[in-house]
Design a protein around this nucleic acid. Structure first.
Length: 596
RNA sequence: GCCGACGUAGCUCAACGGUAGAGCGGGUGAUUUGUAAUCACCAGGUUGCCUGUUCGAAUCAGGUCGUCGGCUCCA
């Protein structure tokens, strides 16, 4: 389905919704339709901005009282009416003065602010019936190209004008829009699916973790079933790191304020740090990062270039003050454990280290079922530590490593942190959503601040290169990601309970116990459910808990030494000898993972 | 932190100025079950917390803690 779009040069270009640009234009025009409808219903509302977004659009309005859910229904109705009314959308280029008069007359004070910020003599204004908007465009030629059955308003929230905190709060209406009703329904279905996978809900149902009001916001309690998953992840992580030459270390949770002064955190990271505690004449601060501690271990003796690289790894628990409004389940908390490591190497050794971290990151993500990764390289920002030369050297290495391995990556020019360039990897989950994953950051700042040196082949002291890297990010956030990706149905090697054995009647309990015993011996996490409930009831509960295998045992099984396995998805396998089942299960566990 | 919405039994929700009710879950009993919820009975709440308005507050107001949707930030 094509729609014509009048372009700035006067030509008419045709777009389809499948093209990124076409989609954006279509949704941007839906945002205007929203604003048009709002202005008709609430003439006093002042217009903010209203762009297309990744999955829809929004428009911000300055309004005395917030919109209500009922307003949304009315607005949506009005939008349909306007779409059907076949209103031409006309692009007008005008001098700033003229535009100022137009918007002043219409009371659009926010638009006046925007006009002043635009460079040049002229601006573009879009006219749509009695609605005018300052906008670069382009837009659809007519409101009738917007399918009245293809859009939906989804939420009311707020946003600061221009995203700045001191500015007034605007009311943001968010929605989405598609050219067909089917596409809209598919999207709404996707939202429902996402909701079903919400790690906060699944975390409670599966008894993985909780966050307790009595203890405080953003502080995670790992319950036994979540703790076993965490342990399995930790064991796997440690094993893989040791294999690759990392050395495990453990460091304290607090340190003298002086240490944080040297590291620069007290200056640069203060708003995320908890206030100091005082005793015996010293100030101590809860650690927001592990790096200074690893540096202290490095610096505990003189280092030779022959020892490098030195790679210290730690599952280090840190505490960061996060503003109450940003906390979110496991994804944004105040205390969390980073799978942290710091690599100290020579400039010559940097490339190899980056290669190895990438390999490790890819390998580990694959084990957890993340096959699609998105790489981003962030380069030098305006304010930076170190010299131009070292930045260029390091950026060049990051780039080269990505390119040599044939990895597609996007570049975030100037998006690096002040202390060095970095590679961030996002994980695409089973619903196509992106999650923050591994990160590799070169640091030119701390080696200077702490004077991290080694003795080179020339017998002289050199400043070491330092790399911060995390594969999982934090165990908390990674667990949240993992839960949503698998919808709580963990791969066999990670499932808190791998097998549940259900005796059909009381007379089968003895045999069921023997099955449980045998599976335990084979190293599986297995439970017996011999409760006085119907078989169907117990099956249902095991299904709800997403247990990978249900073994039903009755007369036939006890007589033949077999089990009747039912897979998590509902598939019922033919009865098989218990020993054969164990062989299969072991195989599945091992293809998922190295060991348990 | 800011804007808005919300906080009632373990969970999901009802009652919206006259001192709380359902389903699921839990306990007990009956039933002994062949692949997603057997039946009955019982217990369970100072309606997040504090203060106020009122003859009377889950219901109204203020504060506080927390949750949700955003802004901003991030592991």
């Amino acid at each position: 389905m094509k729609f014509p779009v009048p372009m700035p040069d006067g030509s008419i270009k045709e777009f389809t919704f499948d093209e990124e640009e076409g989609k954006e234009i279509y949704r941007h025009s839906t945002a205007h339709l929203l604003a048009h409808a709002v202005k008709q219903i609430f003439p006093d509302v002042k217009l903010g901005i209203g762009p297309a977004t990744e999955d829809g659009f929004f428009y911000d309005f300055l309004k005395e009282t917030p919109f209500t859910q009922e307003d949304l229904v009315k607005i949506e109705e009005k939008m349909r009416e306007l779409a059907k009314a076949n209103i031409p959308i006309v692009r007008k280029e005008m001098r700033k003065e003229e535009a100022r008069r137009l918007f002043e007359q219409r009371g659009e004070t926010l638009k006046l602010e925007l006009i002043d910020e635009i460079e040049g003599e002229t601006v573009t204004v879009y006219e749509q019936g009695d609605f005018f908007d300052l906008c670069r465009g382009p837009h659809l030629a007519n409101t009738s190209y917007i399918n009245p059955e293809g859009f939906k308003l989804l939420s009311i929230s707020s946003a600061y004008w221009k995203g700045e905190e001191g500015n007034p709060s605007l009311q943001r209406i968010k929605g989405t829009s598609f050219p067909t009703k089917e596409q809209l329904m598919d999207y709404l279905h996707f939202l429902e699916e996402a909701e079903k996978r919400d790690h906060r809900t699944l975390g409670r149902i599966l008894e993985l973790f909780s966050i307790e009001e009595e203890a405080g916001a953003g502080l995670v309690f790992w319950h036994p079933r979540g703790a076993i998953v965490r342990k399995l992840i930790e064991d796997f992580w440690k094993e893989e790191h040791i294999k690759r030459g990392y050395q495990l270390v453990y460091t304290p949770h607090i340190a003298r304020a002086d240490l944080w002064r040297i590291s620069g955190h007290l200056e640069m990271y203060k708003e995320n740090m908890y206030p100091p505690m005082q005793f015996e004449g010293s100030e101590y601060i809860l650690k927001p990062m592990n790096c200074p501690f690893h540096i202290l271990i490095y610096k505990s003796k003189q280092r030779s270039y022959r020892e490098l690289p030195i790679k210290y790894a730690e599952l280090g628990t840190v505490y960061r003050y996060e503003r109450s409004g940003v906390l979110h389940g496991l994804l944004r908390v105040r205390g969390f454990t980073q799978d942290d490591a710091h690599i100290f190497c020579t400039p010559d050794g940097l490339k190899k280290e980056i290669e190895e971290v990438l390999e490790l990151a890819h390998y580990m993500m694959g084990k957890f079922g993340f096959d699609e990764l998105v790489h981003k390289l962030s380069t030098r920002p305006e304010k930076f530590a170190g010299t131009l030369e070292v930045w260029e050297m390091a950026e060049g290495i990051l780039r080269t490593v990505l390119e040599e391995r044939g990895i597609d990556y996007i570049v975030d020019e100037g998006g690096g942190v002040f202390y060095g360039p970095k590679i961030d990897i996002s994980l695409k989950d089973s619903l196509g959503r992106l999650w923050q994953g591994p990160t590799i950051q070169v640091d030119f700042n701390l080696p200077q601040r702490f004077n991290i040196t080694y003795i080179g082949a020339d017998g002289k002291e050199h400043i070491a290169v330092m790399v911060h890297r995390a594969v999982l990010g934090s165990l908390e956030r990674f667990m949240g990601t993992l839960i949503e990706h698998h919808a709580g149905a963990f791969p066999l090697w990670l499932a808190p309970i791998q097998v549940v054995v259900l005796p059909i009647a009381e007379r089968h309990i003895d045999y069921a116990n023997r099955v449980v015993e045998r599976l335990r011996e084979a190293g599986f996490r297995v439970e017996l459910d011999a409760r006085n409930e119907t078989l169907n009831y117990r099956i249902r509960e095991a299904q709800v808990l997403k247990i990978p295998y249900i073994l039903v045992v009755g007369d036939r099984e006890s007589a033949n030494g077999t089990v009747a396995p039912r897979k998590r998805g509902g598939e019922i396998l033919p009865a098989m000898k218990l020993e054969d089942f164990i062989i299969n299960l072991t195989k599945e566990r091992e293809t998922d993972n190295i060991s348990i």
